[in-house]
Design a protein around this nucleic acid. Structure first.
Lengths: 108, 108
DNA sequence: ATTATTGTTCGTACATTTGCGAACAATATC
DNA sequence: GATATTGTTCGCAAATGTACGAACAATAAT
């Protein structure tokens, strides 16, 4: 069998996984998912890192499409990008549910 | 509010996400989840990378606890670590389901 | 014993990630 | 205009990640 390229789905799944591959970013998504206030200041407050670093993590989540930012007053409000969040959920579900692990193949 | 440390749950979720943050590793899990043959050779065959690299990715998945290896003949058989795979699934479900996105908070 | 098969490990090279403080920009307030 | 508040961006350092070929180990077959 010839070497195959990765599918779009695999690439997108890996991309979302990468966005979530850091405790700070998981904490941010946790926080946003709970719908508490979501200004940068509040997010920064719950993270044990400098604001420069927090801003960087938010930027990565934004670039991955998981969140979006909006300027209000002098503050910045972040929120989950529902559409992509849903896609990520679906992609992960899909990979997890693929595991049949029954017919005595590889899995015991 | 004082800076809080990450929770164990957040750290474990990020750890699993990290293990899945590469297309090659997603492709491997996809392959294993489908219960096809799972000897190193077959896995390597579907990946567009050198065997040294494939071996490395398998090592990372193993260290993350998502798969386990077993030597058979001169071959090596890999399979999903069902217990941890399930934990990963639960952790991801948990973070995704946390999103209420309803009460007109951050999310629109 | 030599040879082939199957994977792992080693050494190397390069790119990316993570984190910080400091500097900066933009708006609001005095 | 000066000052404060809120975040972002810059520049740097250290650590990780990704990929490869070559060398290696272990077993099987000749």
């Amino acid at each position: 069998m010839a070497k195959q390229d990765y599918t779009e789905k695999q690439i997108r799944t890996a991309r979302y996984a990468k966005a979530l591959s850091n405790p700070a970013r998981i904490a941010i998504m946790d926080f946003l998912a709970k719908q508490e206030t979501c200004f940068f200041g509040e997010i920064h407050e719950i993270l044990p890192i400098a604001k420069a670093t927090a801003s960087q993590h938010l930027k990565e989540l934004k670039e991955a499409g998981l969140i979006q930012g909006e300027i209000i007053d002098p503050k910045v409000k972040y929120c989950i990008n529902k559409e992509n969040w849903k896609e990520a959920k679906t992609l992960f579900s899909s990979i997890f549910d693929n595991c049949t692990c029954k017919k005595g193949g590889c899995c015991k």
